[in-house]
Amino acid sequence: MRALVMFLAFLPGAASAQALAPYVIEHGEIRASLTGKAGDPARGRAIVGERQKGLCLLCHSGPFPEERFQGDLAPTLNGVGARMSEGEIRLRMVDGGKVNPQTIMPAYYRVDGLTRVAPALRGKPVLNAQEIEDVVAYLLTLKDGGAPGRMK
């Protein structure tokens, strides 16, 4: 039995795959934290602001005066913590396609149903559960500014 588990772990893909934390979607929300704990808003801000990691500012704008170039393909993140509940934001981060199948926003916590993912990234979500929670905690602090809806 133990040998079998070891073997499975070395199947192609399985080696790099991280098991995603299970979650439940109810009424357009994922209410429970993916880690069982609250995230850290300061770390969340760093992820959102960092181009290679969060990529958020490629499409969104937000309260980042130090970032000169922010995208205009999506609604501003300003005020998102007032517009949406924690569970709605978490669902948006995990897999926005569950809300709007046509969305261009990448699913940050999904590994299945994707095509031709670069080999080094197969089986890996864009952000891990802790990072998702950090971003959710940060977005909840964005209570004011910005008209709701699309910026573009």
Binding site: G71, I104, P106, L114, R116, A118, V126
Partner: peptide, 25 residues
């Protein structure tokens, strides 16, 4: 029109639906 990659975009989503917009700069 095929979505692809970890970020799950098709060419059309950028170049037809969002042409003229800004991806960052």
């Amino acid at each position: 029109t095929q979505r692809m990659g970890q970020l799950n975009f098709s060419c059309a989503q950028c170049h037809d639906e969002n042409a003229g917009g800004h991806l960052g700069a």
